[in-house]
Amino acid sequence: MDATAKLKDLAVSDTGFVFDPYSGSTFSANEAGMKILEGLKQGLSRAEIVFALEEHFEVRGDDLARDLDEFVLLLRRNQLVPADFSLS
């Protein structure tokens, strides 16, 4: 199964409540997390997601690319993306 297929089934409410129908697990994401999930579902690249974040938020000297990589690590740890998934 490719990465986005599983992500597409992930139910993300507008309050940041995330439900994984495959495992039954639920999560809370903040706004930046929701924005990244949205980008991943659309199959955006690393650079495109960073751009989307920059566009959506007022960024004050944060390292978005590093935060994004860390977030993807969290998704892998929670098996929301395949273990070998990494952003292009």
Partner: peptide
């Protein structure tokens, strides 16, 4: 309902 659980969890 998951919705109730969600309400309790998020709010």
């Amino acid at each position: 309902d998951l919705a109730d659980f969600q309400a309790v969890t998020t709010h």
